[in-house]
């Protein structure tokens, strides 16, 4: 899996959690929170959906790694690679 594939999976999750957000123009380097209205409940859901859909575990201490799309890809791509 490439980092771009990984970003796409994260966007798929966000679009299901927050269908009322426009995700077409997300800037990967900028914090998701600064571009979208996502609260802590939504971030918990990203973690939970990663586990449900892809079997990926994100421990609470690593939640900060999910701040931007770029940091998500950086953090999650090796986890996907380990799994396959």
């Amino acid at each position: 899996m490439t980092k771009d594939d990984c970003k796409k999976l994260v966007i798929d999750i966000i679009s299901d959690i927050a269908p009322d957000e426009d995700l077409t123009a997300i800037k990967p380097e900028i914090k998701l929170r600064d571009q979208l209205q996502l609260d802590s409940m939504d971030f918990l859901d990203i973690v939970m959906e990663l586990r449900k859909r892809h079997g990926i575990e994100v421990p609470e201490t690593d939640y900060g790694q999910l701040a931007s799309l770029e940091s998500c890809a950086e953090y999650l791509t090796p986890k996907f690679a380990q799994k396959s």
């Binding site: 299901d16 959690i17 927050a18 269908p19 009322d20 209205q37 609260d39 409940m41 939504d42 859901d45």
Partner: peptide
């Protein structure tokens, strides 16, 4: 109304995956 975010109604729709 639709488009107003960050209020309880919006949170509940998101959390339960319900379309408005």
């Amino acid at each position: 109304p639709p488009g107003v975010k960050g209020t309880p109604l919006g949170k509940l729709l998101r959390q339960l995956r319900i379309e408005r």
